[in-house]
Structure formats: C-alpha cells, structure tokens
Amino acid sequence: MTERTNIRESITKSFHDALERTDSKLLVDNLSDDIVLLQSGLDSLGFAILVAILDEELGFDPFAMMDEPVYPVTFGEFVSIYEKISPTE
C-alpha cells in the first residue's frame, strides 16, 4: 500500500517538475484520475521528460518493459501502469 502511495506521489511531483522544465502550466485544477492527459498542459516533449525523470527516480520505465505499445489517456491510467508494472511490487 505504501509503495503505491509513493509511486503516485512521485508521479505527481515529477509531473509538475516536467511542466516547469517545458515552461508549461497545469491547465486543470488538480491531477485527479479522470484528467485527460492531452488536456493537462503537458505536451509530448513534456511527457518524454516525465518518463525520463521517473525512470531515474523509480528506476524503471514501464512503457519500455511492456511488449505492446500502450498509450494511457487519463492520469489515472498513467499512474496505474506504473503501479502495475513496478518491479518492486
């Protein structure tokens, strides 16, 4: 359970970090599970930066570990991919 909270926290923190690094602003009130990623304010380069930061921070990239390409649509889907694939789970 704590592992899961940690992953969500890391993602939320890194999300803001990536927004800052790309000079972008969060276009929604907060990062709730139903937020559509494309409308969040983070663009494709921002997502690449987010995945890179998380790779360094959590030590894995679930998208590179999956056999098929998967593109999450909502923030909730994004988080659950990290929670499901986490090698420490």
Binding site: R21, I49, V51, A52, I53, D55, E56
Partner: peptide, 8 residues
C-alpha cells in the same frame, strides 16, 4: 538522451 532531457 533521457539524461540530457532531464538536464535540458
């Protein structure tokens, strides 16, 4: 390039 992306 990931390490470059993070540090810009």
């Amino acid at each position: 390039s990931r390490s470059m992306l993070i540090r810009q």
